[in-house]
C-alpha cells in the first residue's frame, strides 16, 4: 500500500479551478517529483495535501483519509516546505528549528537529530542565535528543509527548492534531502521546475498540465519520454 494516495483530487481558488482531478501516489521510502510548467497545478497539489487550499476527492495517508486542517495534517507526520520557504524571519535560527519540532515530544530525539543535521549543514551551529530573516536565500531554503527534518515526518512535501538558487546549492539541497530520506526511511513529494535535478534524485515522477496528470512513470521512463524531454528537460 502506498504511503500517500491522491485520487481524482480537485481544488479551486474562488471561481478558478486549479486542479481537475489529480491521481497520484507516493510509496514508502520514495522520492517522487512533480514536474510541469507555471500554473500547471504543482504547488496547488502540495497545498491540497497539506490542507491549505480547499479540495475534494480522495486523499489518503497510510490508508486513512487526510483531515482538512493544516495543523491536523502536520500532526499526522506530513511536513510541508512551502513556496517562499515559510521562514520565521524575526525568530532566531534555533527557534525556527524548535518550531520545526513543535509536534514532537522526545527531547533526546531532537538532540540527536540536531547533531545529525549539523553534519549536513555545519553553518547552523554558528548561526544559532542569528535572526533567520538575515540568512541568504540558499541558507533559508536549507533551514526550511531542516525545520521539516526536525519534525521527524513520514512524508515531506517540498515546493520548488531550486527557486532563485545557484545550481551548486540546488544540487547540495537535493543530495541532503535524498540522504536524509534514505537514512530515516521517509518519503518525499517534490515539486520542481528544474526537471533534470529532480528526476536525478527521484524514483518516480508526474508531469502536470493544466491541473491534470499528463505523463507519469519512473524517473528513467520520464527521461526517455520524447515530449517530456523536449518540454521540460531541454535536450
Amino acid at each position: 500500500m502506498p504511503l500517500l494516495e491522491l485520487e481524482d483530487v480537485e481544488a479551486r481558488y474562488g471561481a478558478v479551478q486549479a486542479l481537475h482531478g489529480i491521481t497520484l501516489d507516493v510509496g514508502e521510502r520514495q522520492v517522487v517529483s512533480v514536474l510541469g510548467a507555471n500554473g500547471a497545478g504543482k504547488t496547488t497539489t502540495l497545498r491540497a495535501i497539506s490542507g491549505t487550499v480547499r479540495r475534494s476527492g480522495g486523499l489518503r495517508f497510510d490508508g486513512k483519509t487526510l483531515p482538512r486542517s493544516p495543523e491536523a495534517v502536520a500532526r499526522l507526520g506530513i511536513a510541508h516546505v512551502p513556496e517562499g520557504r515559510g521562514t520565521f524571519a524575526e525568530l532566531s535560527v534555533d527557534e525556527n528549528l524548535k518550531l520545526g519540532a513543535y509536534t514532537r515530544r522526545d527531547r533526546s530525539g531532537y538532540a540527536s537529530d540536531y547533531e545529525e543535521l549539523l553534519k549536513h549543514f555545519p553553518w547552523l551551529a554558528e548561526r544559532r542565535d542569528q535572526q533567520a530573516g538575515t540568512l541568504s536565500g540558499g541558507e533559508q531554503q536549507m533551514l526550511a528543509l531542516a525545520r521539516a527534518f526536525m519534525a521527524r515526518p513520514r512524508l515531506i512535501l517540498v515546493d520548488e527548492p531550486s527557486l532563485g538558487l545557484a545550481p551548486l546549492i540546488v544540487k547540495q539541497l537535493f543530495d541532503v534531502l535524498r540522504a536524509w530520506i534514505d537514512e530515516h526511511g521517509m518519503s518525499a513529494l517534490v515539486v520542481e521546475q528544474n526537471a533534470n535535478v529532480a528526476l536525478e534524485h527521484s524514483e518516480r515522477g508526474y508531469v502536470l498540465e493544466v491541473g491534470r496528470v499528463a505523463v507519469e512513470g519512473t524517473a528513467d521512463e520520464l527521461r526517455g519520454n520524447e515530449s517530456v524531454r523536449r518540454s521540460y528537460l531541454g535536450y
Partner: peptide
C-alpha cells in the same frame, strides 16, 4: 517555553505555523 514560542510564531507567520502543527 514551547507554547510561548508557538504563540510568537503564530503571530509572526500564521500560515507557516500551521504547517508545523501549531493550532494558530
Amino acid at each position: 517555553t514551547r507554547v510561548g514560542l508557538a504563540l510568537r510564531a503564530a503571530a509572526l507567520n500564521p500560515a507557516s505555523s500551521r504547517l508545523h502543527g501549531v493550532r494558530v
